[in-house]
Design a binder for these strands. Sequence first.
DNA 1: ATAAAGTCTATAATTTCAGTATACTTTTTG
DNA 2: CAAAAAGTATACTGAAATTATAGACTTTAT
Lengths: 152, 152
Amino acid sequence: MRLSKRGEYGLRAMIALAEPDEQDGSPRMMQIKEIALREGISSKFLEQILLALKNNGLLHSKMGVGGGYYLAKPATEITLGQIFRVLDGPVAPVKCVSQMAYEPCGCPDEETCGLRLVMGDVRNAISDILDKTTLANVVKRQGSLRKKLGIK
Amino acid sequence: MRLSKRGEYGLRAMIALAEPDEQDGSPRMMQIKEIALREGISSKFLEQILLALKNNGLLHSKMGVGGGYYLAKPATEITLGQIFRVLDGPVAPVKCVSQMAYEPCGCPDEETCGLRLVMGDVRNAISDILDKTTLANVVKRQGSLRKKLGIK
DNA sequence: ATAAAGTCTATAATTTCAGTATACTTTTTG
DNA sequence: CAAAAAGTATACTGAAATTATAGACTTTAT
């Protein structure tokens, strides 16, 4: 049940972009290289990932000198589920319980297939978390932990 | 977040072995070919899978004429989590939240990494289901559904 | 005009997955 | 004791997915 590097890097980048700007707390704009450096990622790889997020309406960008990426919507309106699905596809462990990419699997009777029932539960449990957690939630959670530990 | 074929086939086979015998309801013994045919799986591939489950203490086998595989323990004592981990490895989406295969990931401060916090929740949600669901649970659930639908 | 940024597409390298192949051991039974 | 039926063990292969790298192009600020 692994999260791909693509998904991981994309989520990290989005979280970074959702952190409030140090000065004015305005929507933050960052360059690919800046994020790549900060997160220790190949900037060429990150480039593709951010582009995909942009083409799916989660990021906006500004070209040219002084350009960069920024969130397409407030951090309260972007969920980890949206990001995950753009980068890693469906959340469901098996296609026969997928909302976004249903396909029958091999079981003789899908309605009463025990494996399918359980995997449906797993799917729901995962999407319950991913679809209810916004970037704002994540940033807040990080922030209060950091405060508690007296870091940064 | 996909379940591999290896994991899927293994889980299906274990569920099949957990279904009560039609005659006497005794612990069921089945041959590789029998299971493979029933589930529509390559029997050579299934062979490897069952062997792995055996070597990890979840199955017993009898060699020679009239042999086959059977559950090493009562179906109430084998969880889907145990089976999953043998065949697909850790449940955790990222190594840094894995119980069985922890490894640091790239985040500068693991304690306050937002992604890690959320993925920890996901891990717990998945293992909550997989580790609490036994083969007996699955069989029972299938059975009552079938009864309800008047099947078989 | 130039440099700094993102865009786009192709391709390379690596790893994982799913499945095959083959030789071997154990057990039953005639 | 021989033969057949079962599991054991390990090696290998082909395809696909993943993770990257490369390079040529477009847009914008100065």
